[in-house]
Design a protein around this nucleic acid. Sequence first.
DNA 1: TTGAAACTTAGAACCATTACAATTATCTAA
DNA 2: TTAGATAATTGTAATGGTTCTAAGTTTCAA
Lengths: 137, 137
Amino acid sequence: MAQRLANSGLRFTPQREVIYDVLLSKRDHPTADEVYARVRTDMPNISLATVYNCLETLVQCNLVRAVNFERGPTRYCPNLHPHAHFHDEQSGSTHDIDLPAELLEKVSAVLPPGYDAKSVEIIFRGKAQPRVDPAAP
Amino acid sequence: MAQRLANSGLRFTPQREVIYDVLLSKRDHPTADEVYARVRTDMPNISLATVYNCLETLVQCNLVRAVNFERGPTRYCPNLHPHAHFHDEQSGSTHDIDLPAELLEKVSAVLPPGYDAKSVEIIFRGKAQPRVDPAAP
DNA sequence: TTGAAACTTAGAACCATTACAATTATCTAA
DNA sequence: TTAGATAATTGTAATGGTTCTAAGTTTCAA
């Protein structure tokens, strides 16, 4: 952990350590508030702002993954065919990506018995090269 | 559209129609605020609350899909292996689902040229049968 | 040991969304 | 057509997760 932090020019602080420990010791995908509550048993004076800061730091240096890290407002689309979404981080725009039914089945097939999914959401994030229209002047 | 609404015992109102038209006419995944802005050129007195209500209604009767409909707080996990998430809608809990690298490749392969994804997020939603521990008393 | 940079903190601010209560529109059945 | 019931819309207030700010503290390198 100290290594990972150092690699990014970040410091290894007691707060970051305790927060990471909390995440490792009970892997139930806690929210920031839940992390805050758990950390306070060890470190009663930590602030919620610090918890948010540290979680963000841990995500930055790839020690932790944020689920549902789409912070912005919900977006709506009338495309009812099965499709994934590509979120262009530079422009902030969202594009539909066609999804072969065959692939969707394969994805759903990874669920262990006992898991009954009503929906699957697939979100890509990255850069989208603006495609040049070949018919353009 | 009227049919879909009626099927769910809902009414076909001018507001719902205009909002659906807006979504159909420019498919750029607008936010509720953006929908509000566009709708107001046709219907200047509509309220933002109505836009939210109508969007929710359209989602309910399957005319529209909400992207990023995970409203709750962000969750954090220290599992760095590639994995998907299963969100149990009854208990609100989130489980890791192992994802074969081979499948992840297949998923990424659906991206058209020009799309460069830094990350893929796969979220299942549904019911998870609590598995009985065979070693339990 | 001293200065700079990083970090933590409390509290205010932000903003998407939801709740609320009052009004208005729509539907059904007489 | 009308009456009453039900559903929908509206403006505004409230909520809640998250981020900002500015001040104080710690850590590191020289």
